[in-house]
């Protein structure tokens, strides 16, 4: 992205990346510049940040792949047993 002005698609891309701290300073600057004259992207950026904050705040967790795998195997085995009994 050599140019200074981003189109909306590029701006969205930068916005998404910056939610995961994967955007460069220059990219963020270009996004800022874009949102000065694009109200759609401005609104979208705001909402995207809001979502990131909500997720951080919620302390949401999920299972790691390994335990999920183990669980899946156990359920599978148990399911076979149950089906046999029926």
């Amino acid at each position: 992205m050599g140019k200074l002005f981003l189109n909306c698609k590029e701006a969205t891309q930068v916005c998404n990346k910056s939610q995961y701290e994967e955007s460069s300073f220059l990219e963020r600057f270009k996004l800022k510049l874009h949102t000065i004259f694009c109200s759609f992207c401005k609104e979208h950026t705001k909402k995207n940040h809001q979502l990131t904050n909500a997720i951080k705040q919620s302390n949401i967790t999920c299972l790691d792949a390994k335990s999920k795998h183990g669980m899946r195997d156990n359920v599978e085995k148990e399911l076979h047993k149950v089906l046999k009994q029926q």
Binding site: T61, C62, L63, S67, K68, L79
Partner: peptide
């Protein structure tokens, strides 16, 4: 039932861990 783990285990785990503060026990 074969899809249970894929579909619901994360939700159920998250639900449990916020009420019982012990990952192993929650699992």
């Amino acid at each position: 039932a074969s899809k249970w783990v894929d579909r619901y285990s994360d939700y159920l785990f998250n639900y449990t861990i916020t009420r019982i503060n012990d990952a192993e026990l929650a699992k």
